[in-house]
Design a protein around this nucleic acid. Structure first.
Lengths: 97, 97
DNA sequence: TAGATAATTAAGCGAATGTCTAAATTAAAA
DNA sequence: TTTTAATTTAGACATTCGCTTAATTATCTA
């Protein structure tokens, strides 16, 4: 639990998560999008992995990262504990009969 | 944005938020539920307030705190940017005609 | 097998975080 | 008005965090 909130606390890590919405990327591709050393990005990836917000798949010499539903669901569940206090805006639906 | 993620990163602050789901409480009442000094709790309340996750209402000598929808909606919106990648479990609805 | 490439691990350092005690502020009560 | 109570502000200190460079591990290729 702590690891997940810690993971999303950092802006670089949140940006990594957003990049991965467009599909899996390997560590080098991710790092190339930041003005930051590769070891730093590697460390960020490690924290995201520990939080189960991303998954790592080793593909030969490369390591491919993608979003992991597991961690997101846990955060989402925490968030929903506040829905008794106030409802969040929902997408409108329309039913025609 | 950063302030909100920072605010929910700390376990004490998350616990404060949960206490306030049951209704407003003043600073002393909140502090009494933690094995921690009042100034520390006061500081946590300040960070939650800056993040617009809680609101403060001065009532005479007391200060009453309650949840603030503003901040929660911003976090919720961030979270929803990942819904294109995977859907989160939704409550089932049933329509009878 | 030797060399090059992808990525992580290790070590170190300044900045930010969370906690405490002591002091200050504000409002109620005697 | 003096005292008490509720709360915050200030200052100090240990821990954690995010970053860097250097070293290590693992894999591919010539």
């Amino acid at each position: 639990m702590d690891a997940k909130f810690k993971a999303i606390n950092d802006p670089t890590r949140r940006e990594i998560l957003h990049f991965l919405v467009n599909g899996p990327q390997n560590a080098g591709q991710i790092a190339s999008q930041f003005d930051m050393s590769k070891p730093s990005i590697s460390h960020h990836l490690d924290l995201l992995k520990q939080a189960k917000l991303i998954q790592a798949d080793k593909k030969g010499q490369f390591i491919e990262y993608k979003l992991d539903k597991t961690g997101f669901e846990v955060i989402h569940a925490w968030f929903k504990t506040f829905s008794t206090y106030f409802e969040f805006p929902k997408p409108k639906i329309r039913i025609e009969i």
